[in-house]
Design a protein around this nucleic acid. Structure first.
Length: 100
DNA sequence: AAAGTGATTGTTTTG
DNA sequence: CAAAACAATCACTTT
């Protein structure tokens, strides 16, 4: 099993995986994640409820809110994430086709 | 086949 | 413009 759960995902060391260069020809960047969609809506809300806070704060608060919701509440976000994933599926397919 | 690894995604705010 | 905290992901890779 890789690292326990969250916190410093990828990377076996601790080096922040700061956007690596693409190793593939077309590099079909995967799809977005539920958090991306959730943040898209909460970002406005969080910032409004926390006027005058720093970047790290809003970021953290956003994360707390995320899980603060019930799995059912994040459903719409997961749904979008799944939909976005499909988008990637297309790229991937093309990427494979082109690669070949 | 199973396990793991890496790469990626988007937001916020500030200098 | 880029960077960190925040979370998910999950397709591809390797054994």
């Amino acid at each position: 099993m890789p690292k326990e759960t969250t916190t410093k995902r990828g990377k076996t060391d601790g080096k922040v995986k700061q956007k690596r260069a693409k190793k593939d020809p077309n590099a079909p960047k995967r799809g977005l994640s539920a958090y991306m969609f959730f943040a898209n809506e909460q970002r406005e809300n969080v910032r409004e409820e926390n006027p005058g806070i720093s970047f790290g704060q809003v970021g953290k608060i956003l994360g707390e809110r995320w899980k603060a919701l019930n799995d059912k509440q994040r459903v719409p976000y997961e749904t979008k994430a799944a939909t976005d994933k499909k988008r990637y599926e297309q790229e991937k397919a093309i990427y494979q086709a082109d690669s070949d």
